[in-house]
Design a protein around this nucleic acid. Structure first.
Lengths: 372, 372
DNA sequence: TTGTACGCGTTATCAG
DNA sequence: CTGATAACGCGTACAA
């Protein structure tokens, strides 16, 4: 750890980090004192308790005082002190948006890549659309190591935030289970990789795959192939399963298949293998847009026209899809809505921790562009 | 406002928002009581004050007690209570990452678009890379209305956050001036549109334009044109100015020029006009990647090959650049580094509000791909 | 160097 | 329905 004055600290224990609130510098008494409940009370001619009740909308308030108090609030420019309120209510008034992955932030540019992807921003936007009407803050946490995860759980148990909106990027992530164990309200965006008693939102990946299949078949494709993603991720599993089921329903018992790892290069390689082994392929469903873009490259190199010779459908409607050449027909997740709903679910759990776990699955949308 | 029990409230005054910390539900006493300083002190056989000193690294601490106290901390699993600490230190331990624009969040999908752009995520990543070693939280704020801006300034004056990392998206944004006036520590990412006594980081846009020009000329382009962005944004002004200066330095007194508004469509239209009026154009510097992508479309429609007939250089190295066909040669802003430095500057200002304003300008990097 | 005691601004309890 | 008053957990003068 970074604290030289404390050599033998356990990794899970509390360790001071630099630049905390204890740092030197201007601490108090030089900004002008802000109006407090007391000031409002004095001006309104009532007690602090009454002002507090009015402000918090507690019942049993005389309508007359109500008005008097509010005008005193306006007159003084009073704003409740968050810290004081938190201290007594034991609520942080903060929701943590946690991105958890196995890669280390400093060592690996993965977080940069993930953060640069529309997925992250759209999720943030969805969460903020719910929190915007609220005093609840959204605090960001990027977790790249087990140590960081352990620390977060510790901080959370100590009330650093009231709940967690979790983007868990790795199938082996220990965080979901840790949070459940610590009884911290949490809602996952995306189905948990391992069976876990946890609430989550997700898109109906199977249905998305079915949309893609139906689109490819109805445009006349006769040999439709699948480029799957990382085998151990739920999204990949569901999309592949959905593909197979939809094909089976249309009488196609077997289809050419190659797997990638969700990267552009792996998509290109998979497509190349596909063309190699099944030259008659005239339609492909690719488990995400990035790989689909790679597939487009492979097809171009192979001299196949898209969509005339081979039609391609991706998944996610990432910016890669719009920018691809030709623009990708793809399955869009309503991520903003999903994140918004996840936030609502989380807020409900924070209010009532006894709530049973639930999941909400959103319908995907087929966005038809030029590639299929 | 959303509070029916308070009809005539002023817009700038405090108004309760739903689901605040005052909401009903489990408030206290049902989670197990967490260890406090008192508990640690008892176990260590010292006073609260001593424990506090040890934890905060205050000098005048007996080395022996030091060790005893830390082991007691470990034994109890103590974690400082943020709210209590904030209350007395008058520090929130929070930095606000504020995105301010004129568009309303609910009414306009602009925020979604902005958040989905790598710009946002990369900035977040940069900030987090600095904050990660700290106990300081990053809280997100999306501001789409004057009212929201006023409210934020109010909350900030009342200590909701210790400082602001500001992404101001609109040249007429009132927020920078408001924050400066309220004496709230703030660092802008990107030069302020109007002269303002404020700290900021930025990329050397002129230099970026010069890199593009040099690249185009040295690859043999004879008629290089400019597609500029929104005239009232600093970035656009600087890039256009940089282009002209660099061209002048190379003996080109005048160049074809068309303006867009940073959108893909406007870039396509501008390129079309350019081809119309100056058919001999064989090189273009476009003020951002999105417009450059549009330009690519226009060139394709016009039957011009890129880069053989016309070479294209963009700006930003957004995901659009990598995904474009052909992939865009573009000027990359070191956004992560910029946001990280901005965060460091902000932290310094929070520690010492008397600090003079400063700006740090980063060198851009030319990323050479296929388009030029 | 350590301990005592006060105050930070709120909410909640309990009398009136 | 309202007003004292006691926590909430911590940092820090001030005194020892």
């Amino acid at each position: 750890m970074a604290n030289p004055s404390r050599p033998g600290s356990r990794a899970t224990g509390y360790t001071p980090r630099t630049a905390g609130p204890h740092t030197a510098g201007r601490t108090a008494a030089d900004r002008p004192r802000l109006p407090t409940l007391e000031d409002v009370a004095r001006l309104a001619g009532v007690s602090r308790a009454t002002v507090s009740r009015v402000i918090n909308g507690v019942r049993n308030v005389d309508p007359d005082l109500h008005a008097v108090v509010w005008s005193a609030v306006d007159a003084t420019g009073y704003v409740p002190n968050r810290a004081a309120r938190s201290l007594v209510t034991r609520r942080a008034g903060t929701i943590a948006l946690v991105v958890s992955d196995s890669h280390d932030h400093d060592a690996d540019p993965f977080f940069s890549r993930f953060l640069a992807d529309p997925f992250f921003g759209r999720a943030v936007g969805g969460a903020m659309s719910v929190l915007g009407a609220t005093t609840i803050q959204l605090a960001l946490h990027l977790l790249g190591s087990e140590q960081a995860r352990a620390r977060l759980v510790g901080d959370l148990r100590h009330g650093q935030a009231d709940g967690v909106l979790l983007l868990s990027l790795h199938p082996d992530d220990t965080l979901p289970a840790r949070l459940v164990e610590a009884a911290i309200p949490v809602v996952l965006v995306g189905r948990p990789a391992r069976p876990t008693p946890i609430s989550y939102v997700d898109v109906a990946n199977e249905l998305g795959a079915a949309l893609a299949v139906d689109h490819l078949l109805s445009r006349g494709c006769r040999q439709v192939a699948l480029v799957g993603g990382l085998a151990d991720t739920p999204a990949s599993q569901d999309r592949s399963a959905g593909f197979r089921q939809a094909m089976a329903r249309r009488g196609r018992a077997w289809s050419p298949y190659e797997a990638g790892d969700f990267t552009r290069d792996s998509g290109e390689a998979a497509m190349r293998r596909l063309l190699d082994r099944h030259p008659d392929v005239d339609g492909v469903f690719v488990a995400n847009d990035l790989m689909a873009q790679g597939a487009l490259n492979a097809l171009r190199s192979a001299g196949r026209r898209v969509p005339e010779d081979v039609a391609v459908v991706g998944f996610d409607d990432s910016s890669a899809a719009q920018a691809a050449q030709p623009p990708l027909t793809t399955v869009r997740q309503p991520l903003e809505d999903m994140a918004a709903e996840a936030t609502r679910m989380l807020l409900a759990r924070v209010d009532d921790p006894g709530l049973a776990n639930s999941s909400v699955i959103f319908d995907p949308l087929l966005v038809v562009r030029a590639s299929a």
